[in-house]
Amino acid sequence: MPAADLLSSQGLRLDGRRPNELRRIRCKLGVFTQPDGSAYLEQGNTKVLAAVYGPHQASKSKMSTEAVVVNCQYSMATFSTGERKNRPRGDRKSQEMSMHLRQALTAAIKTEMYPRSQIDIYIEVLQADGGTYCASVNAASLALIDSGIPLRAYVTACSASLGRQSATHEPLVDVSHIEEAADGVCLTVASLPSTGSIALLEMSNRLHMDHFNIVLTRAMQGCRDIEVILDGAVRQHLAEGWTKQDVITI
């Protein structure tokens, strides 16, 4: 249900955004030298690092003869939330996140290219301010591109909620922590915007059927907007001389 007070009477959200505006996204590819691909992404105050290793030979137990095995590990730094976290990884929430990340990323990777191999993706949340899943998917997407693993398309994720301005319902894109905590609904979508397919759809809280479509549409639009930003970042990264690093190592 739409929580009250998410939209002011002037139509601005709590942090001054309009309902259809994303938070500021800043990102950088190739932040580490050790992994095969890496990226850093900020979505407002949510800050995420992603590192990709592989493809390399898979361990015997996991190996598949048909496709590459994608292995994800999501972890949140102990200092990432307002109150200090005790377990950075391995708790229920992190495990669930890892599984969801794997689902979304597997959908983007051309898995059939590397049978009997394995790709490891490590995600570390440095600061959490809502939408950590979205930021993780987006960062991982960049890291995969940085590593040169063939993808079907960009995979991006975005969340959306529902606010109320006087009588009309207005979907809100890219939900921040205060908006999440306001006990409204939060719909998270991971999609491949260029193909229009949805890789993952998750919703917290109950939302009436009547409102579902507008919220989903807004979230999908958010995914497309993010894709444009990521694409710009990749192109800039390449234009800046992706060779720089390689030149040094050669």
């Binding site: 942090d15 001054g16 938070r23 500021r24 307002g82 109150e83 600061q127 301010d129 921040s176």
Partner: peptide
């Protein structure tokens, strides 16, 4: 005591 950091967009 909790440090809360919020975004504040200026338009």
């Amino acid at each position: 005591i909790l440090k809360i950091v919020r975004e504040h967009y200026l338009r």
